[in-house]
Design a protein around this nucleic acid. Sequence first.
RNA 1: GGCCCGUUGGAGAAGCGGUUUAACUCACUAGCCUUUCACGCUAGCAUGCGCGGGUUCGAAUCCCGCACGGGUCACCA
Length: 475
Amino acid sequence: MKVRVRYAPSPTGYLHIGNARTALFNYLFARRYEGDFIVRIEDTDVARNVDTGIENQLAYLKWLGLDWDESIDKDGGFGPYQQLERLDLYRKFADRLIEEGWAYKCYCTEEELEAARQKQIERGESRLHYPRTCLGKPDQDKPYAVRFKVPDEKVYRFNDIVKGDVTFRSEDIEDWVIMKKSRVPTYNFACAVDDALMEISHVLRGEDHITNTPKQLMVLDALDFDRPVYGHMPLIVNEEGKKLSKRDGSIIQFIEQYHQRGFLPGALFNFIALLGFSPDAKEEILSKEAIIERFEAERLSTSPATFDNQKLLYINHRYIQALNDDEALKLCRPFLDEAGIGEDRDDTWFNSLISVFKDRLNYGAQIVELYRDFFDRPFTIDEDALEFLGQEGVQALLETFHGHLKALDAFTPETIKNTIKQSGKETGMKGKMLFMPIRIAISGQMHGPDLPRMMHLIGKELLLKRLEKTIEKLG
RNA sequence: GGCCCGUUGGAGAAGCGGUUUAACUCACUAGCCUUUCACGCUAGCAUGCGCGGGUUCGAAUCCCGCACGGGUCACCA
């Protein structure tokens, strides 16, 4: 049987890191086992659908590097791929279930349901199940929902790819609604029907869906459809061990936001793939192709994956290092422009900027932070730095260097470096005693980026001013 | 509360009854490199695999109980 997997987002929001993980693993599964990857839109929650939800999710799936074989924009003969366009299908199957006694019409109002529930709570019942008020009632001329009549004493058992043998008992499941009063199916019903009709072979999804599985199984069984193989992946949790919630402020939740911050799609792909999967490899930095090649359903982990921000930063850092300077600059330029950094500078200046900071860059937007830390601060000399300047010969060195710098015509990192060396020769200073005083004199600090490049970035005028100020302080 | 799932170092994770003195990666610490920082490189970092029993010549690995953590209980998906 051909492998066919699907990612089934609901357009109630944008592409979330957890959904992206589900999509990515289905994609890996399809590509690894040479199957089809299908994107099906589950838009049955009409009230919560957002206008640009579908568009945004598909766009960011693409950005991440996922491509699909079938979806709303690519028909593979199993469409439509959007549930609101399949309403007739679900209604037909729901009617059939009613006819065959698998389901029944429920006329209860929201208030009645709530009242019944309250009663159960008062009685201290542990299972708050629908009391089957409408089971066996004659048809009425009123809107109705359709409930699945859950069989008695039935065991729903399936072999989960990641969890192994999982068992649910029908007593624990209430007569759940398969068609809403609005004649729109509920998730579990539409999902089961579509998985069957679209010939989905494997369902890979988050563990939060595991309790939905028996409901979907009973629909499949009742309709005489084959069951797909299920695999429930552990949840992604935050540092507190809690499921990633969209309101969690400690972690960036949406793929779009990573894009906006200058993360690279390949890095994100790599990082997300490691959330619940461990490749049999000595190295964790792996390309999409390498991950597909190594992907094995058996290597999915069973315990929750902690979202490790530091690791994401590290992985993205590695991907940025693999960029050449032009590409890195392209990644950073929008953030610099937005911050108004280097507005009147030329290309050489930007090239210096990238070569100075690229190796410490974790994500694009960080360039602004790095730049400001070094250049956009008031010029004051740290205490220990000032002490260093008190050493013999420093003042003479700075004065010599000031003279050479002032006379310098071609202002580039190379010529600056030559000027430093020349000043060293003339004053007899070398090594640390040559570079450190100059570093302090122009930056006020004992640490910082490569000196000639840094000086090039600061600009001649400001350098001279700072040198003068420092010399004055010493004298 | 019912049901379902999980528990190996600060984090991810390998391990599938005997060359495991528990791989690998991030973080951390130290050293090296370097004019400084960063980058990079090298080394160190669990005497123990939630706890308690059991099976076995032998258990992180199999079984049972307990504890803790999480998920889920909608006419949401």
